[in-house]
Design a protein around this nucleic acid. Structure first.
Lengths: 195, 195
DNA sequence: GTCTATATTTCGATAGAC
DNA sequence: GTCTATCGAAATATAGAC
């Protein structure tokens, strides 16, 4: 423990802000959540948030960064350059299932606030902050050189994983996460490896 | 044409408002779209909107009604009472593909503004305005009497159709809608009729 | 049915004390 | 690092003339 006592933060307020914001953005939506609400639930005032973040968008951007980091670790070294082969996507998706399950909220944030992220995407110069995965999926779906069937089924597989974990909410509360992961992986197989 | 000339509306302004609102709500999101924007694109003022609708939420509710009507027509007589058997769901889903394709915007509205709809859902007393389809899907997913595999795959099939049509956006612009419908139907088969 | 105001509220953001 | 206080902008909604 070489850190001087004077610089120890309360308990990393910045991260606590992000945790609360994530919770509220998922539950109510980004736009319908005010900074006042976040601050109240945290026991501080709005102004305090502005010490840690430059703007409301900046909070959203930081949460986007969490996902970005997560995807980078998961997908790095999977395909070096150029567009992916469909097989590589299947592998990435399978590998991703576990991450989505153990970071449900983070993915829900993106699924349920697509409009907000798109606006962030175009206005800010957070260039090259796109996740590789996201870009490559787009490339794969739009690649007219691939069989149409492959492209459509790729989208289906993506939807299957997304809905299989996020749509049901409480409806799948009784299902073991490990079992769920295996069933989803199996579904991906059926969608992407039929000929 | 028995309608008296004096009661002929300009061109059914109410419907035109809904059309513009649908377009903007999908493109920018419900919260980020102001009534001023809707009015401007329509060539009228904000106040005019309030003649036709009681509130902004009321506009969203009317659009929800459009979908409700659509689903009612599509699913009526499919299963009379009680929860659905999985097979009945597969049929409903297959039947639904065409509707989703030819009413893309309407479904996108719901997919991209789930937060707004949920708030509408709980605050307003638009009780019993839930679509049968929606309720029954929930029942099916949460039915602990069914095999877990069936429940998970039901969610997958739903996601496959949703993402297959809505996620890609322009990426599938080159794909014929009829072909797309057949490929999705095929994917549903693979997901729901494997043993 | 549509207009010109205007009321009312809420929110994001800033300034400056502590 | 957090507070009080406030500004300015934008949005929803209303009142009343035409």
């Amino acid at each position: 423990m070489s850190r001087p006592a004077s610089t120890i933060p309360k308990i990393d307020t910045r991260e606590r802000i992000l945790d609360v914001a994530l919770e509220l953005f998922v539950a109510q939506g980004y736009d319908k959540t005010s900074l006042r609400e976040i601050a109240e639930q945290l026991g501080v005032t709005k102004a305090a948030l502005y010490y840690h973040f430059a703007s409301k968008d900046d909070i959203l951007l930081a949460l986007h960064g969490r996902l970005h980091e997560l995807l980078r670790e998961t997908t790095e070294g999977l395909g070096e350059a150029g567009p992916w082969r469909p097989g590589a996507f299947a592998n990435a998706l399978r590998r991703l299932i576990g991450e989505v399950i153990s970071n449900e909220k983070l993915f829900q944030l993106h699924e349920r606030n697509r409009a907000a992220f798109e606006k962030l995407h175009q206005s800010e110069q957070h260039t090259a902050m796109h996740s590789d995965l996201e870009v490559r999926i787009r490339e794969l779906l739009a690649d007219t050189g691939l069989p149409v069937r492959t492209r459509v089924r790729t989208a289906c597989a993506l939807g299957a994983v997304t809905f299989g974990i996020m749509l049901p909410g409480d409806a799948f509360a009784d299902i073991d996460r490990q079992v769920l992961a295996e069933l989803l992986s199996e579904a991906i197989d059926d969608l992407l490896e039929t000929d």
